[in-house]
Amino acid sequence: MHKFAGRAAVAALALSFAGEALATEWNVSLWGKRRAFTENVEKLAELVSQKTNGEFTMNISYGGLSKNKENLDGISIGAFEMAQFCAGYHRDKNPTITVLELPFLGVNTLAEEVAVGRAVYAHPAVLADLERWNAKPLMTSPMPQYNIVGTGEPRDTLAKFEGMRVRATGGIGQAFEAVGAVPTSVTASEAYQAMESGVVDTVAFAQHAHLSFGTINKADWWTANLNPGTVNCPVVVNIDAYNDLSDSEREALDSSIPEAIDFYVSNYGKLLDQWETILAEKGVTKVEFAESELEEFRKIAADPIREKWIADMEAQGLPGQELYDLVQTTLKDMRGN
């Protein structure tokens, strides 16, 4: 009896371990805290778990696995299976994606941001670019046009940007530099401290980040219509981890991406609807630039920076003109032109 009971216990234990072995658990590296910017990942994890009856789960970490500027490096060595990063944090590591960070690109809505991101991520040059880091692009984290908050007297003309220290990365930083400002690329998590300590006068963010990282709480004014561009922040997966998924797990992951993006866009829209109320509650002055000032900004920043970017990409053997044209064609197709 005891021998039989012992064998039964061993068999049950073996089955238990076998069941555990069948489960797939991914670690996901984000930063900051849960916010509108991360809701695509949160929703994706929820959907995948539901579709696999909890057999494929994602442990989402906000800063516990890596620094945000090192997420792509972590993916490359398999330190975690999924991560979010922003192209402007390390332009040399992902040059092809930076086409989506060019200033005054002409993207007007989150839906358009999703469309151009999807098109660019599928381009062979971009796939090859990320493969150097053993990374596969999964989905974008679409953000509206950036605008700046600042302290003191509002800077409501380009002339007042001269010498302005602004937290801005990528093409947005280049655009501000073109009109005399001094950009610095401190991370999102460091922006509030940089503003509080006077390292920067102004911070360029999308609305959710001004809320999440507290810069709106230091602000006296906000530029409502400057719209110089945005940053592009892909969600990527480790290629080996993706390939190791079972067919059913991969289907659960891939099929959940559209719904995760739709949820993200809908959720972000609610934040945008509340933005005017938030500004009023915090006593932040809304600055509107004259169209003549905006046209001058575009003239100084858009064409020269775009042409230099294309030339730099082509010099590296990358299809800069083709990638830029892909963005513009995608926008035209979306608008039915």
Rank of each mutant, 00 (worst) to 15 (best):
L158M: 08
L158Y: 03
A159Q: 12
K160V: 07
E162S: 10
E162T: 12
G163I: 04
R165K: 12
V166T: 04
V166C: 01
R167A: 03
A168C: 09
G170V: 08
G171C: 05
G171E: 00
I172T: 15
A175T: 08
F176Q: 10
E177T: 10
V179S: 03
V179K: 00
V179Y: 04
G180S: 09
G180A: 02
A181G: 11
V182H: 07
V182R: 13
S185M: 05
S185H: 04
V186H: 08
A188W: 05
A188E: 15
A188H: 12
S189G: 13
E190A: 08
E190P: 04
A191P: 07
Q193D: 03
Q193A: 06
M195H: 05
M195Q: 11
V199L: 15
V200Y: 10
T202G: 09
V203M: 07
V203L: 05
A206L: 03
A206V: 11
A209F: 01
A209P: 02
H210W: 06
S212L: 03
S212E: 15
G214L: 07
I216E: 03
N217T: 14
N217V: 08
K218C: 12
A219N: 07
A219W: 06
A219T: 11
W221N: 10
W222P: 10
T223N: 08
T223L: 06
N225S: 00
N227I: 00
P228W: 00
P228V: 01
G229D: 06
T230R: 07
V231E: 13
N232F: 08
P234L: 02
V236M: 08
V237I: 11
N238R: 12
D240R: 14
D240L: 09
A241G: 12
A241P: 14
A241T: 13
Y242D: 07
N243I: 02
N243A: 13
S246W: 01
D247T: 09
D247H: 09
S248Q: 11
R250F: 10
A252Y: 00
A252F: 00
D254Y: 10
S255G: 06
S255L: 01
E259F: 03
E259L: 14
A260D: 07
D262E: 15
S266I: 06
N267G: 02
G269K: 12
K270C: 05
L271F: 04
L271C: 12
L272H: 08
L272T: 05
D273Q: 15
W275H: 06
W275S: 04
E276V: 06
E276C: 04
T277H: 04
I278C: 01
